[in-house]
Design a protein around this nucleic acid. Structure first.
Lengths: 224, 224
DNA sequence: GAACTGACAACTGTTGACAGTTTGCAATAG
DNA sequence: CTATTGCAAACTGTCAACAGTTGTCAGTTC
């Protein structure tokens, strides 16, 4: 609501720099679809809109560029990344491999919060029980987030997060039939089990297979 | 007045923006050790040195920050990333997984330039034959580069490149005994063979194991 | 009527200046 | 002699103005 952000941002300005806040803002605009894929990010317009100068905007855009959300063209500016179907398949493959690795590490670690993961499993069951695809979708995201985080590898987390964000840019269809949700969550449960059982190989295999299954679902749904 | 800037940069300015050139320059300074790990990047000094203003410097730093070479602290500036031994192990694990994936893809693709890879194998053999660790090191880098590129996945390439650059920051020891070079290149050859034989599973397994072996060599050498 | 030319408008790239924060040093109190 | 406080220099964060580029559109020519 604060187009020229007042109370909240000002408090944060002590820790975070303006560029960071602007970056968050742009990121949100992109992920909510407020800024469409392929659209140019007009610096002066955005600067006026947010009540800052162009400097922080440019820095924020640079920050997002290496995260894969934004693309730069010299003398033409920053464009919201356009993600093709081929990109999506590539992203799924990478996520599969990284998720598998994360699960392997999580199964070897002591630092995995199984309780939290199991709670999310239950909540996702509830969501699919009431056929609430939106809720399931959100829970699924946080589940995968937690899963990767429990690997203990920060790099792995940021890599995955970046890929997930990029995947968001492909908006054609959000999938999730009732059937899909149920099988997906069954796979989740198996993964958590393997981690709890301290079986790294199996955890890896299941984690990788789960994302590959997601890729298959995507491919099936995106058949045109 | 560009301290050691010549005619070349001016020609490139048409295509690339100043920020990009500055970023390349900084990256080089970091990788050659000109800028030491943990050192702060002084904006005004660097700006004066390169004959540009602070804007491009800041943007370049932002560009490098998401590449893992530079770290930002609010109101304190940009620091050359400090890479610990634990970081190195984490990086090795990730590289192992990604390299495995790259090999798998390369074995499934038609777009793999086997000829180039084999040439590199020979050159590395020659380098280890004359016990030239530096040459081997450089060749090894390009070999892995080519290998990952032949996966056809651009994202995979940039991810790996980023990790490799980060690993460069850990300078303690460059490893490579004669023995290491020979075994390492034998592994390379096996990988190329598997790719040529169109055996994705084996290629993946070998690629992953090769980097893991590198990790083991690193651990053995870094024992203090 | 179609193709080319040249100016104009909109935007990005870059710069130099201003404001706020951090840090090190020096003076002072205990 | 040590600890604390206050100041000043250095540096980063931000801004507003200038310079160069790109794309468009009217005018001209064939």
């Amino acid at each position: 609501m604060n187009a020229s952000g007042e109370s909240d941002p000002l408090a944060l300005r002590k820790a975070n720099t303006l560029s960071t806040l602007v970056a968050d803002r742009i990121e949100q605009s992109i992920l909510t679809g407020d800024l469409e894929a392929g659209e140019r990010i007009n610096e002066v317009t955005l600067a006026r809109e947010l009540g800052v100068s162009r400097g922080p905007i440019r820095e924020a855009a640079r920050l997002l560029s290496n995260q894969g959300l934004v693309e730069f063209v010299a003398n033409k500016g920053a464009f919201v990344r356009r993600v093709s179907r081929a990109d999506m398949l590539e992203i799924y493959d990478l996520r599969a491999v990284l998720t598998g690795h994360a699960c392997e590490l999580a199964a070897s670690n002591n630092a995995c919060d199984l309780q939290a993961l199991r709670t999310l499993l239950d909540e996702m069951d509830a969501a699919s029980g009431s056929d609430d695809a939106d809720a399931y979708y959100a829970l699924n995201l946080t589940f995968h987030d937690r899963l990767v985080e429990s690997s203990g590898s920060k790099r792995l987390s940021t890599m995955t997060a970046s890929l997930v964000k990029e995947a968001h840019l492909f908006r054609k269809l959000s999938l999730s039939s009732l059937q899909d949700m149920q099988t997906s969550n069954a796979e989740h449960a198996e993964i958590v089990e393997a981690i709890a059982a301290r079986n790294p190989e199996r955890a890896r295999e299941l984690g990788e297979r789960h994302v590959r299954a997601g890729k298959a679902r995507f491919e099936a749904a995106a058949e045109t």
